[in-house]
Design a binder for these strands. Sequence first.
RNA 1: GCGCUUGUAGCUCAAUUGGAGAGAGCAUCUGACUACGGAUCAGAAGGUUGGGGGUUCGAGUCCCUCCAAGCGCGCCA
Length: 581
Amino acid sequence: MERRGLGPRVRRRRLRHQAVRTARARRQGQPPARLPQANLTSPGDPSVLRDDLASALRATLGAAGVDAPDDVHLERPARREHGDWSSNVALATAKRAGRNPRELGQQLVDLLSADPPTHVTKVELAGPGFVNFHLADDWLHAVLREVVVDGVDGYARPDLGHGRRVNVEFVSANPTGPLHAGGGRWAVFGDALGNLLERTGHVVHREYYLNDRGNQMRLFGASLAAAKAGEPTPEDGYRGGYITDWSAEMPDGVDPAAWGYDRVKRDLRDSLGSIGVQFDTWFSEQSLVDSGAVEATLAELRANDMAYDADGATWIRTEQFGDRKDQVIVRSDGEYAYLLPDLAYHRDKFGRGWELLIDVWGADHHGYVPSLKAALRCIGHDPDELELVLGQLVKLIRDGKEVRLSKRAGTLVLLDDLVTQVGPDVARLTFLLQSLDTTQTVDLDAITSQSMDNPVYYVQYANARIHSIAKRATEQGVARVPLDAADLSLLVHERELEVLRILEQLPDVVRLAALERAPHKVATWVRELADRFHGFYHDCYVMGEGVAPELTQARLWLVESARIGLAIGLDLLGVSAPETM
RNA sequence: GCGCUUGUAGCUCAAUUGGAGAGAGCAUCUGACUACGGAUCAGAAGGUUGGGGGUUCGAGUCCCUCCAAGCGCGCCA
């Protein structure tokens, strides 16, 4: 049964675990806000093992006469021969202690070897001074047990938020036409981020801000009316094919702008729904004017001398809070500039009880960040209560050429078209596999014509195999014994252990992905789990001749743990887990 | 001009936030058990991480500097 050893492909990098500042926070030069820095593990979490090792190291450092650092760093080494856990404390502290790293490391190794922590079979000094821990396989069997006992709802659910109320605003494309395919990136990202925050102990609200007033809306209505009347599109108007289509739907005698607004809202809602994204609130900018919230915000600014009149316009004092310059909030023609209603909107979100606001924007708006943050300070809010997640834009390729997107020019690849062609799962995973930090290149021909190569099938196939095994077991009358009755110590095949090693990482992956606002880490992990499961499936038969019944039982539980891990990961991504393909 | 972001295998992307020999998928080539679904698995090949300098025991990651690309710098939204 043990067919062959593992090649290099299974020796992969492991996720680190320490508390981190978010990439976003670093980029914006902020402190880590209120992200928890410690105590991130729950009782029963497999990382208690890591905590054990850390405290053992801490104690040992003390015995060696060296002050332990605040963060005794432990990580999963990339290479198997470096053990299961590794620490660089000797390297990190040697200099300050005036010691030689290897000499200090050796002392730690000697002390630890004399009284090894639980599961530890060997402690070694390696390289420039790493202390490497080798563990007995049963630590991974404990992981399996925990995954199964905690289940889909309980495993990998670190409480980072403690119920903190987070409002996530994303997409918020202007309501003047359908969503283009690139917009799917924001939709899917924001939704998956919401899932991550929910899983990590936050109360999440998904919100879409509709800029339903101003010149663009007027132009949109005028464009519809013109198309219906067979007249030329107004200057700077919208001329996409949807204008023609919609104008044909538009009844006589209606206000084109109002009718168009309803039409576009329905379209946005349907398109987003088709990739599984639902908003809790569609917030109208106009409603802020109607309710007086904009005027109230303006009055508050004036009352606190945060606004002043000059050159016929009204300005807000944002420069004192780090903006390039003060900004106009009421133009000399009396119209509100974009910032004022937007500020009123954010004020409203706080007013509704949201403690942290996350706005997901395209990087083309980054220049606006300092203005909005400064404006928030002008109304007395800590700018850290607003977090901007900026993402690079999507570049669409068709026929080997970039497709430039413009609603006005009418060159559109619609999100609807994409989803119709490839389905929501492919669309979601395509967008989610990639970090928001890089410009995403989507080759439309590749993801449509070669859709069978899409990683989503690789992952879903693993799930199908899991259920196929279950079905097979049922057919053969093999019932799973209770977990406690299974002898997990039979799971010693490298393929089995690799599955458990990746499952062990899931809580860290979830935590990191949530803290860093980086759902792509979950996507990467899911693919990795699928990869290891396929390897296990290939080399380790669960049932069949030559497989002892006890081994079958242990492997059935391993399969169950993989099912749970896959379910958690796919659920976070909003990708379905079909039982058959 | 100033600012932000990006630059990793032919292509699309990862990389435990400073760790050990930079990893996947696609594409190319070569293989795989008469058993649970071959949409799978194994192997080969592919790299001066844009260039150069610096900090460090250690740099794709941090600093400086060049190069290239995208974006932003409005009484637009």
